[in-house]
């Protein structure tokens, strides 16, 4: 039995939240609240696995990642990276992981791509010929070689993200930690980046990634932990998670008007278990996801809906996705 690449055990992070006082009033002591950002999170990542943390913004994904990569100290609980405790030997852990933090401001904009990589490479312990070769290889590999000697401030967001990823790979770490790697990228760049992540997996890297895009988690991850309000509410392979709600049929409605009262009536009648409406500004229509309950047929739901005097622009019946798993578990959509 090999040592897991990453062990997270009963991890907690609590922040004290100070309320802002009014103009002439200081907040009283009892107004100090404790905010639990990460609540008893446990999981293990096997070597070579791609593990996804899926959850909406503010669910505690980034906090978890920062605790693993030594930037934050856990309030309670334990982290082991290749059997090493970051609390005890932070530099040893740091030299074995490559972390890409969210946002494009993680590299120096006033340095070129190459200079950035050479700088960080030295900090990761590379030097001389080895450093030069490694940097050239990474620039080449991430299609940055042609513009490697331009200042990062002239790069596109996608290129900056690739520099960040190259930076994380400088020391060729076994464990890669990626925080929202495709956030803010255009669809093409995001697709390229996902392919790179799959290549990295094939090369034997272990990857821990966070995302709030369910397609991404589904596409990339061997296993997914769904996290909400700091807690892991489900953990399994994407297939198993979806299989868990296979008996739930999912109907996507496109309608002109939507009132929550309608959804509540359908639920009260036992026809659906959940509904999540979202307004699509471009199409000037509501897209509503309905989870059908138990024995209900699609026809019965549609008939009931039409009977209430509503119109339907379009509808489709879909395979449950991870998004539906999330809706099933929390009653809300990932993007809320």
């Amino acid at each position: 039995m090999s040592v897991p690449a990453l062990v997270v055990e009963e991890l907690y992070k609590e922040f004290k939240v100070k309320k802002k006082g009014g103009l002439f009033r200081r907040p009283a002591a009892d107004e100090e609240k404790v905010f639990i950002a990460v609540n008893a999170v446990s999981f293990q990542v096997a070597p070579g696995e791609v593990f996804g943390l899926l959850g909406p913004n503010g669910a505690g994904k980034t906090t978890t990642i920062k605790m693993i990569s030594t930037l934050l100290r856990p309030t309670r609980g334990r982290v082991l990276v290749h059997g090493i405790d970051p609390e005890k030997e932070p530099t040893r852990v740091l030299s074995q992981i490559g972390t890409v933090l969210a946002g494009e401001r993680c590299v120096y904009w006033k340095l070129t791509g190459r200079e950035n990589l050479e700088y960080f490479g030295t900090l990761y312990g590379l030097y001389g010929q080895e450093l030069k070769e490694r940097v050239s290889y990474l620039l080449e590999r991430f299609q940055l070689a042609k513009r490697g000697d331009e200042l990062v401030e002239r790069y596109s967001t996608g290129m900056r993200q690739r520099v960040s990823l190259a930076r994380a790979l400088l020391a060729n770490p076994k464990l890669l930690i990626l925080d929202e790697p495709t956030a803010g990228l255009d669809p093409q760049s995001a697709r390229n980046l996902r392919e790179i992540i799959l290549e990295l997996k094939e090369e034997g890297h272990t990857v821990l990634l966070t995302t709030h895009y369910m397609e991404e988690a589904d596409f990339l991850s061997d296993r997914v932990a769904i996290i909400d309000h700091g807690k892991i509410i489900a953990l399994d392979t994407p297939e198993n998670l979806k299989r868990g709600i296979r008996q739930t049929r999912v109907v996507h409605l496109e309608v002109q008007e939507w009132q929550d009262g309608v959804g509540n009536n359908l639920r009260a009648a036992g026809l659906i278990s959940n509904y999540v409406p979202a307004y699509d500004g471009a199409a000037r229509a509501w897209r509503v996801v309905l989870h059908l309950g138990g024995e209900t047929t699609v026809g019965a739901v549609l008939a009931a809906y039409l009977e209430m005097g509503n119109g339907i622009l379009n509808f489709s019946v879909e395979e449950p996705s991870l998004e539906d798993v999330f809706i099933q578990l929390t009653g809300k959509s990932l993007r809320e």
């Binding site: 930037l71 740091l94 933090l101 904009w109």
Partner: peptide, 18 residues
């Protein structure tokens, strides 16, 4: 403010040395 502090702290070089 630039957002590069954390990335530097992620490298295996003690902050004091940096």
């Amino acid at each position: 403010d630039l957002g590069v502090l954390e990335v530097n702290w992620l490298t295996p070089v003690p902050v004091v040395i940096q």
